[in-house]
Design a protein around this nucleic acid. Structure first.
Lengths: 126, 126
DNA sequence: CTGTATCCTCAGAGATACTG
DNA sequence: CAGTATCTCTGAGGATACAG
């Protein structure tokens, strides 16, 4: 117990390409299958949307992955869950101020991808 | 044998957030654990580098993942494998013209990440 | 030094059914 | 409609030993 073993994360912390450097953390955030799509959709929908609406706009996502992704983004402080005081009560998710900031690099990527579709098509498919 | 089952990819192909739209393909390319780090390192090293050198600059990557990532990028036409006619012969990998183009969005992300380290630190860690 | 071949683990992702 | 709870499974990622 309390064995003295080498920190398994240590090797990642050295050098100019450290595993947990800022850019890498951004890339990790974007590496989930649905995170970027949910954020992008949320952005296109004006920064706020109801779960059902989101799900209908993201064909292929399961209810589980939708909830899971929303929860993750919520825990990160990127979106917030708001209970609307309507009758009957409704739920919607909104980009936070922090979340809005992360839309910037995401939209950069989306724009680049759309403008350079030709390059992406050029990639040898396998 | 040639069963007639519903195309499992079909649902992803519909709607404005299609799974295989250009921006998504770019994001998928960048979602591998080492792809972006290898490309970024290669870029910082002048667009060409020997495998051993790359590996020393990417602490934590195993030889297997190194080879695998290089092979993948090579198959996509993003990098090329060059055998140097030296004595003894040596190998190096170079960004192709196509590959150079993909450096653009990647460096965008890296820059954004570095300039916005504060925002990334602000994410509620869990 | 470069690259391959195995084997293994575990987390991400999905299918399904159930609860307010 | 929103959300939870299980169960399953594929495959990305990693460790290790071997080969040219």
């Amino acid at each position: 117990m309390t064995e003295t073993r080498p920190d398994p994360l240590k090797p990642y912390r050295k050098g100019p390409f450290a595993e947990d450097c800022a850019p890498r953390r951004l890339l990790r955030l974007f590496s989930g299958k649905w995170v970027t799509m949910v954020l992008h959709a949320l952005h296109l929908m004006g920064g706020a949307a109801r779960p059902g609406s989101l799900q209908r706009n993201l064909p292929g996502i399961s209810k589980k992955m939708m909830t899971q992704t929303l929860r993750e983004l919520q825990d990160l402080g990127i979106i917030e869950r708001v209970v609307l005081q309507t009758m009957p009560p409704a739920v919607e998710y909104r980009l936070t101020a922090l979340g809005q900031r992360f839309i910037e690099p995401l939209e950069m990527l989306y724009c680049w991808g759309e403008e350079n579709r030709a390059l992406l098509d050029q990639l040898t498919e396998n």
